[in-house]
Design a protein around this nucleic acid. Structure first.
Lengths: 197, 197
DNA sequence: GTCTATATAGTGATAGAC
DNA sequence: GTCTATCACTATATAGAC
């Protein structure tokens, strides 16, 4: 029975433990209200372990961000393959994000609600990220093929998805008390009516 | 010629200078990236002066917040008096906020974009504030009198104003490059089509 | 009411034993 | 690879002179 030095039981990948713990603290208390000592304490590990896996607190946040962006991009890609029309694609995106808000609230909070610029000045803004760009592309395609009215892409994308983003924020903040997925049809209907030709 | 001890020229109301300086720094660098020494330095006053007028850094933020909430409430009240229908009222609200985003970007940024809970844990959330409540009331009235489709108020309000809020955020972040007011008609049209009966 | 100087506490990060 | 102990620094806030 090989001995490792950790006092924790299952520290196969301490890295993931740190990321998970940090995410929870960052989203519940905020990045700046979370010290590395908080992370260490909550994860029940030493500060040396934290700094062995990440060179700084900011790097932890950046790792969370990058991982989440990758997952989102992958899901978007699948939607693009699975559906053809802008209407179907946009609705599938909305469904996916509503679902995630329920199943991965912390991740969603961190991606959609956090002010990344303030603690990860070097990271690319969410707005310029691949997933968001894909959403605009979906809308642009819709404008080109006549599914969506002629107008500025950014404006159209914002009108189409703005209500959804805000619903998610309200939900994550605990203002909206009910799970989002059952309201998909209604929110989608309002959004699509607004921009459809 | 009466002598005062300040080294600054026009420190009639140093309090306002502090608030204005703090607002700019809070919105440009973020609350946590702004130290009281930053405020002191930028406003070219002493730290003693700051702490004479405000008992803590958080109190400065709370003062900004309260002042801004009051102004917004007042403007909302005027809109309620000036217009009768939900359609007119909601559109007037949108116009007002679009205008403010251009004329008072820092104030708007602070009100709509900042994560108040993280640095003013005791302040009431924007969502529960008077102005936001009034927006929901406008929508509720619209549902009652048939201007807006039958549905959950929060949901309707979010669908109606969600696009607008997001446009403002994009604009304040510098993602959307053009002034918002000229786009009012388009955004309003999308929003209203979505929820109108 | 405004100033300078300082107390106090906690932060991000490192050193070096094991 | 994980630990403990500690550094260097910066932050908020206070004390007390003027």
């Amino acid at each position: 029975m090989p001995k490792t030095k950790k006092k924790n039981g299952n520290a196969v990948d301490l890295r993931q433990t740190i990321l998970k713990t940090a995410l929870i603290l960052f989203t519940s208390k905020g990045y700046f209200n979370t010290s590395v000592h908080d992370i260490k304490r909550t994860a029940d590990i030493s500060i040396g372990a934290v700094y062995h896996h990440f060179k700084s607190k900011e790097e932890i946040a950046k790792a969370i961000y990058a991982e989440m962006l990758e997952v989102m991009t992958k899901s978007m890609d699948e939607i693009m393959v699975q559906y053809d029309s802008t209407q179907e694609r946009a609705k599938a995106i909305m469904r996916m994000l509503f679902d995630w808000a329920e199943t991965n609230p912390a991740e969603m909070e961190f991606m959609l609600h956090a002010k990344h610029k303030e603690f990860m000045p070097s990271a690319i803004p969410v707005c310029s990220s691949r997933p968001l760009a894909m959403m605009r592309e979906v809308v642009q395609t819709g404008i080109n093929n006549g599914e969506i009215r002629e107008m500025d892409v950014t404006l159209a994308a914002t009108c189409l998805f703005g209500g959804m983003f805000r619903m998610i924020n309200l939900r994550l903040d605990g203002i909206f008390k009910e799970p989002l997925p059952p309201h998909l049809e209604m929110v989608w209907d309002c959004a699509w009516k607004g921009v459809a030709r």
